[in-house]
Nucleic acid binder design. Structure first.
Length: 448
DNA sequence: TTTTGAGTTGTTCGA
DNA sequence: GTCGAACAACTCAAA
């Protein structure tokens, strides 16, 4: 019998439960369905990454990958009829939109006599698994992490896969077509492993320290590969020992799982505050606020570390994690804009855009999410820059107007007065003033 | 049920 | 220059 491997966020052959499950039923047809929101919500750089990942998957399956056009609820039943398949095998999607889609697809397939098999998850421990003793989910990372560590995960052995040859059944885009986008990072399974091997050998030992320095190549940069399942977290966990660096990397993986778990239990927190009391926070949303947001999105705030981060994202589809926090804090606490604006911007521009990690990361910064963050935690873009990019190398790399500024002034070029680079903007707000404003607004929420 | 301790990532001020 | 304390109050987890 023919079995469809419906590929979504499991673009790999190794340790793939959906593929193993499909192969156990017969000849496998690897299928990718273009859905509107996949292309519409993604910027050009992420599309390029996805196309490269799919191209390499196609070549890894001997050119058998089939593309169809969504919506999936129509495409799947039709395709199963076309190839005579009676089962569709997937890696489960735990995000709100994906879950709803899969339920609809399951009903449609069932009506056509086709079984939808949820055979794997994108996480080492499936969302919904880690619980307190009373069965309720956790909302604080550290206790979650302690329990998460006690759960077991199991790898899938390499399957003996026979890919079905039905000729060319593809419909829809198979590449970037008209535009000339180049993937910002190598997107194949082999490339992901090359990266992990070389990075872990070189940088894992100093990970705890170096992961905070955006000028260094200190982080794994595997976020996009994890997001699309080119690499699976349990494959990484398997390769981590008990060293300090490995411990820290493991907890970063666990953060990803924690936020997926939080969103699984509280799907409305995708775009709504996890803490309802924060709904009364006063925010700026008028036309002037929109103008400030536009300037922020261009990377022209006048704060070098902020602009460097935004331009790194615009230019490469990725932003260093430390800088994501600085940039997010600036939007929320210096510009007083809704965190949702920033989250949407990141979702569009990041190759690794993951709804759970992204939006709950933003909620963390905004103080609206898990961890009742101390209200006084306001990042100072100058001191953060001086602390984590002490040489200014990162800023100079992404903000060429500042390339010639000396290290002493690189994070506050306005202090050069008339000698400040004329083509770099003055700070759009005064951080000290906006810090006080943010503290006052937070105070108003808690009712002092 | 009640109580207790703790909570990713910071900044500033004053000694 | 370095260092520790202060910066709210609240919710969550666990005993």
């Amino acid at each position: 019998m023919t079995a469809v491997w419906w590929i979504r966020r499991d673009m790999r052959l190794a340790d793939n439960g959906a593929l193993v499950s499909a192969a156990a039923r017969g000849a496998v047809v690897p299928l990718f369905v273009w859905e509107d929101n996949l292309l519409a919500a993604a910027g050009e750089i992420r599309r390029a990454f996805v196309f490269e990942a799919l191209r390499s998957l196609d070549s890894a399956t001997g050119g058998r990958l089939v593309y169809r056009v969504g919506p999936a609820v129509d495409a799947l039943p039709e395709f199963c009829r076309l190839v005579g398949a009676d089962s569709v095998h997937i890696t489960e999607d735990f995000a709100p939109w994906g879950r709803a889609r899969d339920r609809r697809v399951e009903r449609a397939l069932s009506g056509a006599g086709v079984e939808l098999v949820r055979a794997d998850t994108p996480y080492a421990i499936a969302p919904g698994t880690v619980r307190k003793d009373d069965g309720t989910p956790l909302r604080v990372f550290t206790p979650f992490y302690k329990r998460w560590l006690t759960h077991e995960w199991r790898s899938h052995p390499d399957a003996d896969v026979g890919f079905a040859d039905h000729g060319d059944l593809s419909v829809g885009p198979r590449g970037p077509g008209g535009w000339s986008a180049v993937s910002p990072q190598p997107a194949s399974e082999a490339a992901a492993w090359d990266r992990f091997e070389s990075w872990s050998e070189r940088a894992l030992g100093a990970y705890k320290q170096d992961r905070n320095s955006p000028a260094l190549d200190g982080t794994s940069m595997l976020s996009a590969h994890l997001k699309f399942g080119i690499i699976h977290p349990r494959q990484l966990l398997q390769r981590l020992d008990a060293s300090a660096g490995a411990d820290h990397f493991r907890s970063e993986i666990a953060w990803r799982e924690f936020y997926a778990d939080v969103l699984f239990h509280l799907p409305h927190t995708t775009w709504q505050n996890l803490q309802p009391k924060m709904d009364s926070m006063r925010l700026d949303t008028d036309a002037a606020a929109e103008a400030r947001f536009d300037r922020f999105c261009r990377g022209e705030t006048g704060y070098p570390i902020v602009d460097a981060g935004i331009r790194q994202m615009l230019g490469s589809g990725w932003m260093h994690n430390r800088v994501r926090m600085i940039v997010a804090s600036f939007l929320v606490k210096d510009l007083h804009l809704p965190w949702q604006w920033g989250a949407r911007f990141f979702m569009e521009r990041l190759v690794d855009a993951d709804i759970a990690s992204n939006n709950h990361g933003w909620q963390w910064t905004a103080g609206t999410g898990t961890d009742a963050a101390p209200y006084f935690r306001v990042f100072n873009p100058v001191s953060q820059g001086q602390k984590f990019d002490p040489t200014g190398e990162y800023v100079r790399r992404w903000v060429p107007e500042l390339a010639e500024v000396d290290t002493k002034h690189i994070h506050e070029p306005w202090t050069l007065g008339v000698f400040a680079p004329a083509d770099y903007p003055a700070p759009m707000v005064d951080h000290a003033v906006e810090r006080d404003e943010a503290l006052a607004r937070y105070k108003a929420v808690t009712g002092k």
